[in-house]
Structures are given as structure tokens and as C-alpha cells.
């Protein structure tokens, strides 16, 4: 009987996930390269999580999310974070209308399906907190009323990794709220050549609208149904626990490099993201490959490094590699 359920689920996912290929195709029309970024955007979208992007300027971060919004026919807003930004500039405020002689609500740019929080670390903590609270609660309170944010709601925040002066780095607890942290790299040589050609010819393909936001909401419910075996759950817990107690996994050598391990949110996010990845790969069940595929994006911002690790130029990616190479695959 259970066997039939999985078969049914597989068939359902085969049917429901067909749009993933269409989205990828449309995205690839506009964005050259950055396949990893596109895939992570889809994972975030399907797993109901938010993304923190780190990369140099000009790597098609804004273009990627705005194209995704175009494909889904969703509302997209971009907020440029600056030191003088106020929380009300993001969530909205009450404005006195002389015509009606009463206060009326002016909703902020956060009321959109896709929000790009550009250079989130340029604004002080109170502004960051306003956005992060909206991300967590998926609702905003203005005056006496609480307003639900539209569905789907995806925030993609960017950080510039090189400029540190005049920035307000996100606290660890706030970083934990992002499901994925994606490092955006430069395009390959061939890809960059293709970008130049496109600009020289002034040919900028447009993505077609092929989906409605409701389709994404429906797909999310299917992603939740993707089967995750107990062995996979144990594998996820082992990976997360290895960041907290490396000794227990024969990783005593990295013990002094980890200041704090990943939180339970990491386990939840790893499970959700692995399910979304399985869905993208058009499978109705999660296999260890899915966990490994999203492991770096989910965990890299959730592990604290010690001064010793920083002095030796050891990154969280190095530690995750050590962990996945030692934790037995079920």
C-alpha cells in the first residue's frame, strides 16, 4: 500500500514539476550562466525560504530575481539599503490624508512577492530587523492592523563581501533566518563572451510569463509531500550534529575551529531544501545526493568560526567538506 503511495506521489511530482524545466528555460534565455543561482532561487521559492546572496556587483543578482518575477507574473520590488533608511521605508507607515481627514495606511515595498534587499548590511540593525521580522512572520503590523504579505513571498538579500567600511554586518541570529546563503561567482570565459555579444548586438531576450503565483503556492504543498525516509532524517541530523560535537564523529581536528554549530533551524532548512531539490530533479523521494547538493548553501552561514580558523584562512565550506566526507551515507 505504501509502495503505491510513493508511486502515486512520484507520478504526481512528475506532473507538477514539469514547470521547473520551463522556468529554467526561460531564466536561461535571459541570464547567461549562473545555473547554480537559478537553481538556488527555485529551491528557495519551492521550500518557502529566503536567500542571502554574497557576490561582487554586476553578477546578475537583480536580473535573476526580476526575471523570476516576470516568469511567474509576480510583483517584484527592490529596496536599496542605505544608512539613513528607516523601518517605515520598508514595511510602510500611516499617512494623514487631508482629503479624507483621517490616517490611511501606506504599504511599503515589502508588500511584494519577490523582494530584493540590495546590500542589506548598509542599513543599521533596526531596519534589518524590520525586514527580517517580516520575513519570519510573513505579516507586517502598521498602526493597529496586521497585514499578511502576499504568497509566495521570497526575499533575496545581497551582501558585498569586500566593502566592510560603513556596514552593519548581520548578526548570527538574523543570518539564521535565511534558508540559503548563496555565493555568486564570476561567469566562465565563454559565458562572459556571450554576455558581451548580447550587449553589442543590443539583443536582450525577454522571459515569458508562464506561471501564476498560485501555481507556486500549489507546488509548495506538493514539495511538502515529497517522501523523506527516516534514514535521510538521521543523515541530516548527523551532519548538523557533527558541527556541534565534531568529537563524536571522529572530527576532533576541527573541534577548535568551530565556535558554535548549526542550529535546529539548519536541520529544518536542510530537510526542506533537500525536498525542494528532489522536486526539481522530479523525484517524489529524497536521496542522500539531495542533502549533499544543498548542504553548503544551508549550512555555510550557520557555523561560527573561531579566531584560530580565521587566522588559518579556514572557511565554513572547508569544515562542511570535512563533515560530509566523514559522516556515513545511509
Amino acid at each position: 500500500m505504501e509502495n503505491v503511495n510513493i508511486k502515486e506521489l512520484n507520478d504526481r511530482i512528475q506532473k507538477e514539476s514539469a514547470f521547473v524545466d520551463i522556468i529554467s528555460m526561460e531564466m536561461n534565455k535571459v541570464i547567461v550562466g549562473q545555473k547554480h543561482l537559478v537553481e538556488d532561487l527555485l529551491i528557495g521559492l519551492l521550500a518557502d525560504g529566503h536567500l542571502l546572496l554574497e557576490g561582487m556587483p554586476g553578477l546578475a543578482k537583480t536580473l535573476a530575481i526580476s526575471t523570476l518575477a516576470d516568469i511567474i507574473d509576480a510583483k517584484f520590488n527592490r529596496i536599496q539599503f542605505t544608512p539613513d533608511l528607516l523601518p517605515s521605508d520598508i514595511v510602510g507607515t500611516m499617512i494623514y490624508s487631508q482629503k479624507n481627514e483621517q490616517f490611511q495606511v501606506k504599504q511599503g515595498p515589502v508588500f511584494a512577492n519577490f523582494v530584493l534587499a540590495d546590500e542589506i548590511n548598509r542599513s543599521p540593525a533596526k531596519v534589518q530587523s524590520a525586514l527580517l521580522e517580516a520575513m519570519q512572520e510573513r505579516a507586517v503590523t502598521i498602526g493597529d492592523n496586521t497585514y499578511a504579505l502576499p504568497k509566495p513571498f521570497l526575499v533575496m538579500a545581497t551582501q558585498n563581501p569586500i566593502e566592510q567600511e560603513g556596514t552593519y554586518p548581520l548578526p548570527e541570529a538574523q543570518m539564521d533566518r535565511f534558508m540559503l546563503k548563496v555565493i555568486v561567482n564570476y561567469p566562465k570565459k565563454d559565458e562572459e563572451k556571450q554576455i558581451i555579444k548580447m550587449h553589442n548586438a543590443q539583443e536582450f531576450p525577454k522571459a515569458s510569463t508562464v506561471l501564476k503565483p498560485e501555481d507556486i503556492v500549489r507546488a509548495r504543498s506538493v514539495v511538502k509531500d515529497v517522501y523523506m525516509d527516516e534514514k535521510i532524517e538521521r543523515y541530516i541530523v548527523d551532519i548538523v550534529y557533527a558541527t556541534r560535537t565534531p568529537d563524536e564523529y571522529g572530527l576532533g581536528k576541527i573541534k577548535n575551529l568551530i565556535q558554535y554549530g548549526a542550529s535546529p533551524r539548519a536541520s529544518i532548512s536542510l530537510a526542506k531544501a533537500a525536498k525542494a531539490y528532489a522536486f526539481i530533479k522530479r523525484r517524489g523521494y529524497v536521496i542522500p545526493e539531495d542533502v549533499r547538493a544543498v548542504c553548503y548553501e544551508v549550512m555555510r552561514h550557520r557555523i561560527g568560526l573561531t579566531y584560530e580558523a580565521e587566522a588559518e584562512n579556514i572557511t565554513t565550506e572547508n569544515l562542511i567538506t570535512e563533515i560530509v566526507n566523514i559522516v556515513p551515507v545511509p
Binding site: 505504501e2 509502495n3 525516509d229 534514514k231 535521510i232 517524489g284 523521494y285 529524497v286 545511509p330
Partner: peptide
Amino acid sequence: ADLVKFAKYT
């Protein structure tokens, strides 16, 4: 084996 182990396949 993956199907059996992770997808309840018989």
C-alpha cells in the same frame, strides 16, 4: 537499492 532504502519501493 536507493529506491528501496529511501522511497519504500518494493
